[in-house]
Simulated scan of single mutants.
Amino acid sequence: MVEARFAHPVLDASALGAAPVAVRVLGDDFVLWRDDAGTPRAAPDRCPHRGTRLSLGRVCSGQIECPYHGWRFDGAGRCVHIPALPGFTPPASHGLATNTLSEAHGLLWLHLQDDAARPRFDAEADAALRKLNVGPYDVAASAPRIVENFLDLAHFGFVHEGWLGDRAHAQLADYRIEPTSCGFVASGCRAWQPQSNRLSSEGSWVDYRYELTSPYTAVLTKLPEKQGGYRDEIALFVCPVDEETSRVWFRMALTDHDSSDEQIRAFQHTIFTQDQPVLESQRPKRLPLGSGEVHCAADRSSAAYRRFLRDSGITFGVLP
């Protein structure tokens, strides 16, 4: 599966505490826990003994315990204890096939392959920018539908009227698409926005730059014309839960050091919850890469995204 070449966000890092947590990625179930050193661990959510969900169990001294017969597994997946046979040393065949779980951008990322690539977010290294996460949002839409919406400028004056756009400024200027090794960059984008961010007090033109950094991740840079020096870097991280359901986070990197976390989250929440009902209404729920939907010149970024998915061999959440 091509999608296994990419790491996928599954949980806020702070949300993994003393209890195991169940997550779902690409239609498969996994259990997350922390070992006795506090290191996050992951494995398929299925005990090899009788197929019980390990996420229904508990964590004991960093070992995950099955709720059915009490079998325990350490962070490396080895079965270390079978209560019914306390003197028995379980062989390797009784263990779990674990997955790497890494931490970045305030999230835990599941690696289905050892060499799975985690998408970059260059703004993370900029100490001048304030960072925080917004989400997660559970959305009844495929991951590609959500990413395509994030890359789309033409909906601002309708879905986000009075916020990111208005009907009187719906026309789009030409913008450029440049392929990259991991996706593409859309530059030269401009939009008239009544309120481009929480601190803006009047409408202005805003320069937009989009970068697709993996099949289910994109980064937006916003530079408002009337807020000299202001900059937003917003990463969209989408976990493809099932073919038609997703979990969404936004990683905000901002020059806004005046607003509270709650105020920033409330602004981004307003914007995304305007998008969400539209996304959940789309049919088909999976993004069609072939026929079935018509296009116009304003859909340049959408066309580039669909072409990238098709050329990359992505099949999860799309229709051929």
Rank of each mutant, 00 (worst) to 15 (best):
A4T: 07
A4M: 01
R5G: 09
F6Y: 15
A7Y: 01
H8Q: 14
H8E: 05
D12I: 14
A15Q: 06
L16C: 12
L16G: 05
A19E: 13
V21Y: 00
V21E: 11
A22L: 01
V25N: 05
D29A: 11
F30I: 08
F30C: 10
L32K: 04
R34W: 09
D35M: 12
A42S: 13
A42R: 07
C47G: 09
P48C: 08
P48Y: 01
G51F: 00
T52Q: 06
L54C: 03
R58T: 11
S61N: 13
E65D: 02
C66L: 08
H69R: 15
W71Q: 13
W71M: 13
A76D: 12
C79T: 08
A84R: 15
L85H: 14
P86I: 01
T89C: 06
A92Y: 03
S93T: 15
H94K: 14
G95A: 07
L96Q: 11
N99T: 02
T100D: 11
T100Q: 14
A104Y: 02
W109E: 10
Q113T: 06
Q113M: 08
D114G: 12
R118L: 13
A123Q: 08
D126V: 06
A128L: 14
A128T: 14
V134R: 14
G135Q: 12
Y137K: 14
V139Y: 04
A141V: 11
S142F: 05
P144F: 04
R145P: 09
V147M: 13
L153G: 07
E161Y: 01
W163C: 02
G165D: 11
A170G: 04
A173W: 00
D174H: 00
Y175Q: 12
S181I: 00
C182M: 05
S187Q: 02
G188Q: 00
C189K: 07
R190Q: 12
A191G: 10
Q193D: 03
Q193W: 02
N197L: 01
N197R: 12
W205T: 11
Y208V: 06
Y210M: 15
E211Q: 13
P215M: 06
T217L: 05
T217F: 00
V219E: 08
T221R: 11
E225Q: 14
G229S: 05
G229I: 10
R231D: 04
E233G: 01
E233L: 01
I234C: 10
A235D: 09
A235Y: 05
E243I: 02
T245Y: 01
S246I: 10
R247N: 03
W249E: 03
R251A: 15
M252Q: 15
H257R: 12
D258G: 15
Q263G: 12
I264K: 07
H269I: 00
H269F: 00
T270S: 08
T273I: 00
Q274P: 03
L279M: 13
L279G: 06
K285R: 13
L289N: 10
G290P: 05
S291L: 08
G292H: 09
C296G: 13
A297R: 07
A297S: 14
R300I: 02
S302R: 06
R306M: 01
L309T: 10
L309G: 06
G313L: 09
G313T: 09
V318N: 07
P320C: 01
P320G: 05
